[in-house]
Structure formats: structure tokens, C-alpha cells
């Protein structure tokens, strides 16, 4: 390796070391605190409302991720391939949930479903402060992240192969299914993973729109909030640790089953 590039790599390495080291230290701090008081941490886990929160978190985040991937991919494909008026406006609007503070998303949803004619829908089906509110809040944000990822993926893929598939006898829809989606699968897996992770950790909109109702809309981030508010730091940290473990499992499974990421490695 040339000398100057050695410095280049060293600088990048140092940055990586500091950041990754910090992350590991944060996790370690959790473990240290929990192991200092294992009984209290363990008793948190045996509480039925916490077990319920874990199940509810897994269920809602998974459902939201699936919904986000469908909706986000469809919109990303539309914006990437079809020219229509106000396209840039739609593109901008899709970023709204990313840069808006999460609490604002929750407040907006609450106003929408309680103060506008849509409240009749809410009265009918019971959305606000119920499980559907969790999924809705998570999906709103999840879609935006899927959209960003998938739009970049579709933009980077030449239209050529799709056109060719159409000329070989496919309809546009089946060219999308047979050619575009499989080729976009690494992006799709990444998008799904991001959407899931976002939904799993979503707190602000859920707190406002779904409430923090024990046993009803309590997902894991809300549990942490409630435990902190009860002064039970050990419990809060224990739940956070479980979240880290679950996320590690889910994300590595996605990595393993997802398409092989092709990228150049310099030796």
C-alpha cells in the first residue's frame, strides 16, 4: 500500500474505532448495571405486562415493516419510473416523516383522527389509543425510510432490462415482478430491515397517538418510559437490553437471508 493511502485508511480506522467503541461501551454499561442487580432486572421480565409488551412490540413492528415495504416500494417505483406533474412535490413530501420530530407525527395523527371528519372512522373502528394506532404511527415513519432506500435502488437500476423483458413478452407488471424486484432484492432487504428497526424503536408518535396504556398499547419503548417514570432504572435497562438482543437477532437473520450485498473490497 502506498504511504499516503495508509494514512487515509488509518484516519478512517480511528473514526470507526471511536464510534464502534462508544457503541459497545454503551451496551456494556447496560449489562454492567443489570448484572449489578440481577434480581430486580429479572423480576421485570417475569411481569406479565412486560411480556405482553415484548409480544406486542414484535407483532406491531413486523406488521408495520411489511406494510411499509409494500407502500414505500410502490411509491418509490412510481416516482422513479413515471413522469407526472408535481412529482418533485411528492418526492419532497415523502421526506416529511424523516425530518419532522417524531412527536409532531404523533400529534398530527391525533389531530387528524380526533378533530377532523376522520374521527368518525376512529369512533367506528377504535384507532386512537388502540393497537391500530401503534401500527399506523410506525408505518407512517417506516414508509418514508423504505421510500428513500427503494428510490435510490430503482434510480440506480437501468430501465433497459425492464423494457427488454416487456419486449420479450411480459406486461409491465410482470416485468416488474420478474426483473425489477429480484434485482432490487438487496435494497428491498435493507429497506425492510430499516423499516422494522425504526418501527421497533418508535416511541414519540406511539406515546402521543396510541398512549402509554399498560396492557393495551404498551410497546417496549413505552415500557422503558414507564419504568423510568416509576424510578425503576434497572427494569428500564433490562428492557432496553432485550431490545438490543432482539434487534441483533432480527437484523442478522435479515442479513443472512437477504441478497448478497455486492460491493468492491480493496485489498
Amino acid at each position: 500500500m502506498i504511504r499516503s493511502s495508509r494514512y487515509f485508511v488509518t484516519v478512517m480506522g480511528i473514526m470507526a474505532l471511536i464510534y464502534v467503541g462508544l457503541l459497545l461501551a454503551m451496551v456494556w454499561a447496560h449489562v454492567a448495571l443489570v448484572s449489578g442487580n440481577p434480581q430486580s432486572a429479572w423480576s421485570t421480565l417475569t411481569r406479565p405486562e412486560i411480556q405482553q409488551a415484548i409480544l406486542l412490540s414484535l407483532g406491531t413492528s413486523l406488521l408495520s415493516a411489511v406494510l411499509s415495504v409494500w407502500i414505500g416500494t410502490a411509491i418509490a417505483y412510481l416516482i422513479s419510473r413515471v413522469r407526472f406533474p408535481f412529482r418533485p412535490l411528492v418526492d419532497f413530501l415523502m421526506d416529511l416523516p424523516i425530518f419532522l420530530p417524531p412527536l409532531v407525527v404523533g400529534v398530527s395523527l391525533l389531530i387528524l383522527f380526533r378533530q377532523t371528519p376522520l374521527s368518525r372512522l376512529d369512533d367506528l373502528f377504535g384507532i386512537a389509543f388502540q393497537v391500530p394506532a401503534i401500527v399506523l404511527a410506525q408505518t407512517i415513519v417506516g414508509v418514508a425510510f423504505v421510500y428513500r432506500t427503494m428510490k435510490a435502488t430503482f434510480d440506480s437500476m437501468p430501465v433497459r432490462q425492464e423494457e427488454l423483458a416487456q419486449s420479450l413478452g411480459c406486461s409491465w407488471y410482470s416485468a416488474f415482478c420478474k426483473i425489477t424486484l429480484p434485482q432490487a432484492s438487496p435494497g428491498l432487504v435493507t429497506a425492510a430491515a430499516i423499516a422494522w428497526a425504526r418501527s421497533f424503536g418508535e416511541f414519540g408518535p406511539v406515546l402521543v397517538f396510541a398512549g402509554s396504556i399498560r396492557g393495551r398499547t404498551e410497546v417496549m419503548p413505552v415500557s422503558i418510559y414507564l419504568e423510568l417514570n416509576s424510578g425503576n432504572l434497572d427494569g428500564a435497562v433490562m428492557i432496553a437490553l432485550i431490545m438490543v438482543v432482539i434487534a441483533a437477532i432480527v437484523l442478522s437473520v435479515t442479513r443472512l437471508t437477504g441478497g448478497v450485498q455486492r460491493g468492491g473490497v480493496r485489498r
Partner: peptide, 27 residues
């Protein structure tokens, strides 16, 4: 394009990278 039934060989070849040669030929 599908209904026109034309065999088209583009300049850039554009084989389907995620499909095997057999699947490409039978596409």
C-alpha cells in the same frame, strides 16, 4: 411491446443478471 412479438437484441446485450443462462434463454 409484448404484443408486437419482435425478437429484440439490444446493443448493450442486457442479459438478466439474476437469471441463469437457461432462464435467460427461456424467458
Amino acid at each position: 411491446p409484448a404484443a408486437r412479438s419482435i425478437g429484440y437484441l439490444p446493443q448493450d446485450v442486457a442479459l438478466f443478471d439474476h437469471l441463469s443462462v437457461r432462464e435467460n434463454l427461456g424467458f
